[in-house]
Nucleic acid binder design. Structure first.
Lengths: 134, 134
DNA sequence: CTTCCTGCAAAATGTTTGCATATCC
DNA sequence: GGATATGCAAACATTTTGCAGGAAG
């Protein structure tokens, strides 16, 4: 499904900026920040980007990702997966699979304080081969 | 080992605020923010708390933890473990064990971009039994 | 007595809000 | 036409930096 249809399907208006944002998000291979999107999408105000990213996330079209810095990143809400981030240069690898849901069930079973687990956040940090050579 | 000895062992000065901070950190059952520590430790400037938390983390006495909000939290660097956070009331459960290191090795083996993985971040988000009843 | 730590003020960063105008359906 | 989205300015929250004075070893 293309961007415009995805938006309308969720009851969101398909404004040009929003369509561009969603398309850019789905085209990006790594999670992007509002600031990065602002540079990429000409004409859209940074505030609009913030609002739209939140809106996409709230409607299930994007997912929030947090690395070790203080900026919130978003990625297309297709497959659920995690990342491997180089703490030196910031390059990001995607991990294609996520076996954590199994662990999630175990964790919930052991806890008598929690009724449900809906989400998790898992990221790995290390050094890429390029940075390791220096 | 007590706070003062731990600090000196790392080559850090055992100033009263720092000793108090480290003691409070080790006494706390959940990750705390600079702001929370500031309220807890009377007389210390918030900036000093920020600097000391960073310093403790840099010397391996504390570890950074990030939940879903924008504040950085720290916890005592004893056992490595993860958390289960209620997205409604914020209550935190500790998961006693971490089996992710095994996964870490697998992940590294599959990646040809990365030379090493030194760290990971895993938190679960859900609803606690109290909040689930409402 | 030197190095490191602290407080204060001020800046920087990332994000949110209010409101009037413009746009989509 | 009515609800929703946008831009602009301004507020906000969290964290960082500079610098001069103070304390630890």
């Amino acid at each position: 499904m293309e961007a415009e249809a995805l938006l309308k399907d969720k009851g969101l208006r398909a404004t040009p900026h929003r369509v561009a944002l969603l398309a850019a998000l789905y085209a990006s291979s790594r999670p992007v920040s509002a600031e990065e999107m602002h540079k990429k999408i000409s004409g859209a105000d940074l505030v609009t980007i913030y609002r739209n990213l939140q809106s996409l996330a709230a409607h299930g079209l994007a997912r929030e990702v947090r690395f070790k810095d203080s900026t919130v990143r978003y990625e297309a809400a297709g497959l659920h997966h995690h990342h491997l981030v180089c703490t030196t240069c910031g390059i990001v690898d995607e991990l294609p699979e996520c076996d954590i849901h199994l662990l999630e069930k175990e964790v919930l079973k052991k806890s008598d304080t929690f009724a449900s687990i809906d989400e998790h956040q898992l990221e790995f940090f290390g050094t890429c081969t390029v940075c390791a050579k220096r």
